[in-house]
Simulated scan of single mutants.
Amino acid sequence: MNLQQIFNTTQPIIGVVHLLPLPTSARWGGSLSAIIDRAEQEAVALVSGGVDAIVVENFFDAPFPKSRVDPAVVSAMTTIVTRLRELISIPIGINVLRNDSLSAMAIASCTGAAFIRVNVLSGVMATDQGVIEGCAYELLRYRRELGSDVKILADVLVKHAQPLSSSDLTNAVRETIDRGLADAIILSGAATGSPPSIEDLRLARAAAGTTPMLIG
């Protein structure tokens, strides 16, 4: 994968549109139009701030299911992304928390989004949602079935989780790329807003080789 082809830069800054609670989530407020209005405001603000792309995620739906989300969430996110695609011209990505990669791929493929973020593509992670297993086998087959070119940006040893398989960062990066077939990897710290260490960045960059790496 060449980042330049998607983001028009090799060092993209990707802003996040954190959606208000969606239908069927624990804090759903009953108004989809309010969610759309907030998403549009965030997207426009991010574009005005100079980001190269945005990723849309159901951030406020916590507590999350560990795999498939409710169909209403998929429908709502599809509606929102379609509206944002009409409003802004920069690339859009999708993240369906906690790890519903198939729904993310479906939304992205049907709306013309450029990429998805997958929390656990490879390996096994213990999370507050329970044990989450890698989904590479199903996701790569599904992308092929859809005839889609949506890129897969995969977390390595994702935040808010502990590995139940290998905790070796170098090995995890290589597995995610060589066996999970990620188009790019994402390295973050232990929690949202917590950066990875410089040493971890160096290890991951060396292990990734020519595969692009982003900092979450």
Rank of each mutant, 00 (worst) to 15 (best):
Leu121Cys: 07
Val150Tyr: 00
Ile90Tyr: 00
Arg143Cys: 08
Leu153Cys: 08
Gly130Ser: 07
Thr79Leu: 12
Leu140Glu: 07
Ser101Gly: 15
Ala108Glu: 02
Ala136Ser: 14
Cys110Thr: 15
Leu121Glu: 02
Gly123Ile: 06
Gly93Pro: 05
Gly134Thr: 14
Ala108Trp: 04
Arg144Gln: 12
Ala126Trp: 00
Met77Pro: 02
Asn95Arg: 00
Asp128Lys: 11
Ala108Pro: 01
Leu140Met: 12
Cys135Lys: 12
Val131Phe: 00
Ile132His: 07
Phe115His: 14
Val118Lys: 03
Val150Met: 03
Ile80Leu: 06
Arg141Lys: 14
Arg117Pro: 15
Cys110Val: 13
Lys151Ser: 05
Ala113Trp: 05
Glu138Gln: 14
Ile90Pro: 00
Arg144Cys: 02
Val131Ala: 05
Tyr142Asp: 09
Ser122Ala: 11
Ile80His: 06
Ile90Cys: 04
Ala76Trp: 09
Ser122Val: 13
Met125Thr: 12
Gly147His: 05
Ser122Asn: 11
Ser101Ala: 15
Glu133Ile: 08
Val69Lys: 00
Val69Phe: 00
Leu153Ile: 11
Thr111Ser: 03
Arg141Tyr: 12
Arg141Val: 14
Cys135Trp: 00
Gly147Asn: 03
Met105Arg: 01
Lys151Asp: 01
Ala106Met: 12
Ile116Lys: 07
Ile92Tyr: 06
Ser109Met: 05
Arg117Asp: 15
Arg141Trp: 13
Glu145Asp: 15
Lys151His: 03
Leu84Tyr: 05
Ile116Gln: 09
Val150Gln: 01
Leu87Gln: 12
Ala136Glu: 11
Met77Arg: 05
Lys151Val: 07
Leu87Ser: 09
Gly123Tyr: 03
Gly130Met: 04
Ile132Val: 15
Arg117His: 09
Val131Leu: 04
Met105Val: 15
Ser122Gly: 08
Arg83Tyr: 05
Leu97Gln: 10
Asp70Trp: 01
Ala114Glu: 12
Arg141Ala: 14
Arg143Lys: 08
Gly130Gln: 02
Ser89His: 12
Ile94Asp: 02
Gln129Ala: 14
Ser75Cys: 07
Ala108Val: 13
Thr78Glu: 03
Arg144His: 10
Val81Thr: 14
Val96Ala: 11
Ile80Asp: 04
Leu102Ile: 15
Ile92Thr: 06
Thr127His: 09
Leu153Gln: 00
Tyr142Ala: 08
Thr79Ile: 12
Arg143Ile: 15
Gly93Phe: 02
Met105Asp: 10
Val73Phe: 00
Pro71Val: 06
Ala106Pro: 11
Ala126Arg: 14
Thr127Cys: 07
Val81Glu: 01
Ile80Val: 11
Glu145Asn: 11
Arg85Ile: 13
Ser75Lys: 10
Tyr142Met: 10
Ser89Lys: 15
Ser75His: 08
Ile94Lys: 03
Ile88Leu: 04
Val120Thr: 15
Lys151Leu: 11
Val131Ser: 08
Asp70His: 08
Leu102Val: 15
Ser103Arg: 02
Arg143Asp: 07
